[in-house]
């Protein structure tokens, strides 16, 4: 898929663990793992908003378009 999810990069920058982020945004660690590995088919605006709030960043910092 040409949309890359950079949640792990932002997590590393903020020095935040998966468990902590999952708790903050209210999703399971399994779903966070799906998001990080790029297996997710879609992201809800509410989830994106929660991630941006928890990591103190913009949606553009998390999602990136790269041509195949």
């Amino acid at each position: 898929m040409s949309i890359i999810v950079n949640v792990d990069v932002m997590m590393a920058k903020r020095k935040m663990s998966s468990q902590e982020l999952a708790e903050k945004i209210g999703i399971t660690q399994a779903n966070l793992s799906i998001l990080k590995t790029g297996k997710a088919k879609a992201v809800r605006f509410s989830t994106l908003e929660a991630i941006c709030k928890a990591l103190d960043c913009q949606p553009g910092d998390i999602l990136e378009y790269r041509e195949d």
């Binding site: 999703i27 779903n31 966070l32 799906i34 998001l35 297996k39 997710a40 088919k41 879609a42 992201v43 809800r44 989830t47």
Partner: peptide
Amino acid sequence: KDEQDLTI
């Protein structure tokens, strides 16, 4: 269903 299950 797959799409729904993989929507985070």
